[in-house]
Nucleic acid binder design. Structure first.
Lengths: 112, 112
DNA sequence: TTTCCTTCATAGATAGTCTATGGGAGATTA
DNA sequence: TAATCTCCCATAGACTATCTATGAAGGAAA
């Protein structure tokens, strides 16, 4: 298949952090997480399902979130995710590292 | 080969921008670019050679930089890179997009 | 004359995102 | 009541960018 230009809807490497942070508001299902991120970011960040579900799998495997099946507000079957305490710790580390990076990049970009 | 944890030395997707910006200071060789970025970022950003040279190849192919051989301050053969005007335009676009993204991520991360 | 540093470069592995696709099931509308 | 819509899950395959590892060549330094 031929691909044209890739229009990034996310900064690569930040999705796990965004998901973990979003889940600190409380348990949510995958679809809801994506919507929330999109909404709060004023539609700038778009979380595609093909990025979201693999990410949630990673987080499950690493023990940073846990999941259980339930029913959504719309009466549909949905899988609710929660951050574990290991996940909160991880979130702290990632957020801190992200700040460091952005700060460093800003230093490089603002020098004449 | 078994890999342990990957400690990111860069935010993925930002390397081209960093290189282009660094080159706006004037022509530099690859090794020098890496050193400069590392220095200005207070050693936070580390540009590995296996990331740097593929990146420079990309930029050459896209016409955002051009290169010519010369001799370094240390009397060694070196390839000097310069940003083209297309490269400057690209830099503007990428920098703007990066700001947008970081701003959006910040909004998500600071909400309680 | 051996070792170190500079400067180039490539190959292969890996991670993360995107496109594309599929399906089930409740809600809505015709 | 049939068709369609929307919600919600999920996977496969392609692609990009980075990292690890490695090599080579030549000048400098010990």
């Amino acid at each position: 298949m031929v691909r044209t230009a890739t229009k990034n809807e996310l900064l690569p490497g930040t999705l796990d952090m965004l998901i973990l942070h979003t889940l600190t508001r409380g348990a949510m299902h995958g679809y809801g997480i994506a919507q929330k991120i999109q909404e709060i970011s004023d539609e700038v960040l778009q979380v595609e399902e093909g990025s979201l579900y693999p990410a949630l799998q990673r987080l499950l495997v690493k023990g940073w979130v846990k999941a259980e099946w339930g029913t959504s507000e719309n009466n549909r079957r949905a899988r609710y995710y929660t951050v574990t305490s290991a996940g909160k710790k991880q979130l702290g580390t990632e957020a801190e590292n992200f700040r460091r990076m952005v700060h460093a990049i800003a230093r490089v970009m603002q020098t004449a």
